[in-house]
Amino acid sequence: MKNIGIWMDKEKAYIIIVKENNEEMITIFSEIEDYRIHGGSGTKIKGGPQDVVQDSKFLEREKHQFKSYFKKIIPLIKDSDAIVIYGPAEAGEKFKKELDENYYSLSKKVKAVLKSDSLTENQTKALIRDYYKNNKSHILR
């Protein structure tokens, strides 16, 4: 039985592989750019030249970076029996959507997508361990 817990945000993912009485943790970094839009007037003169903000260009780049991030995670979880996803932001939901659309066999193994604040590595391991300990009826046999 190989149960997997993933805690993820835009910056990194902790993949915790829970087997019998031990767990292994792998950290994957996303390489997603953290951009801030700098737009508006390039001069203090009223009506001066304006910088054009290409928001859609940044969003499209971010979408591709998320796909690359998820592709790093997929090989590490492909032989799991059950998966639970945690995270503080929308990264977990985006990952689940990616699984639904492109990795259906993995998507069926996802038991929950839950919100969680940022945690230390030990807190993350405990969270995943406790989930599987307390939710045995949801785990595939």
Score class of each variant (00 low, 15 high):
Met1Ser: 11
Lys2Cys: 08
Lys2Arg: 14
Gly5Pro: 03
Gly5His: 03
Trp7Asp: 06
Asp9Ala: 05
Lys10Asn: 13
Lys12Phe: 08
Ile16Gln: 02
Asn21Glu: 05
Met25Val: 09
Thr27Phe: 05
Phe29Gly: 06
Ser30Tyr: 04
Glu31Asn: 13
Glu33Asp: 08
Tyr35Pro: 09
Arg36Pro: 00
Ile37Leu: 09
Ser41Asn: 14
Gly47Lys: 12
Gly47Gln: 13
Gln50His: 14
Asp51Glu: 15
Gln54Lys: 15
Asp55Val: 08
Ser56Trp: 08
Lys57His: 15
Phe58His: 13
Leu59Cys: 13
Arg61Phe: 12
His64Asp: 07
Ser68Trp: 11
Lys78Asp: 07
Lys78Tyr: 07
Asp79Ala: 10
Ser80Trp: 02
Ser80Gly: 06
Asp81Ile: 11
Asp81Gln: 14
Ala82Tyr: 03
Val84Gln: 02
Ile85Pro: 00
Ile85Cys: 05
Tyr86Asp: 02
Gly87Leu: 02
Pro88Thr: 03
Ala89Gly: 12
Glu93Trp: 12
Phe95Asp: 01
Glu98Leu: 04
Leu106Glu: 00
Val110Tyr: 02
Lys111Trp: 04
Ala112Pro: 11
Val113His: 06
Leu114Cys: 03
Ser116Glu: 11
Asp117Leu: 06
Ser118Phe: 06
Thr120Ala: 12
Gln123Met: 04
Lys125Ser: 11
Ile128Ala: 08
Asn135Asp: 11
Asn135Trp: 10
Lys136Gly: 10
Ser137His: 15
Leu140Trp: 15
Arg141Asp: 09
